[in-house]
Amino acid sequence: MAKRVLLVEDEPELRRAIVVRLNAAGFQCEVATNGKEGLEKVEHWHPDLVIADLLMPEMGGCEMVQRLRARHETSRVPVIVLTALPRQAKEERIEDLPSVRLMHKPFDSAELLVVINDMLAKDSAGGPSDG
């Protein structure tokens, strides 16, 4: 069965681009436009992986990840956080959370797919989560 990826991104065009790419790679996709909506979708749709932008209205990726980690059912779902902020910003600390990876925009789609598959593989192996 196709793996489910939830994409949380407020830029509609970038959202569309990533969805096209993910669909082409065989993933099932669902979108949300901010962290709040993202949390609801996680609860009802149970994605295998979440991709979230860092800066979004209402609730950004950082807070969303922290909330996901705080709840038992979602404490392990892998998250890729996309950021367009300069490197080495404070936000890099969220990479200390388990199963969180940070990717900088503009990213390489091939690299994004590699990271997605890598995280999904680790997750299903049930091994220690990646910090």
Binding site: E11, E13, L14, A17, I18, V20, R21, A24, L55, L82, A84, L85, P86, H104, K105, P106, F107, D108, S109, A110
Partner: peptide
Amino acid sequence: VSHELRTPLATIKEFTAI
């Protein structure tokens, strides 16, 4: 500036790659 420039760039890059 970084954010405002990189986000559209990401969209261009992604669609070009598609």
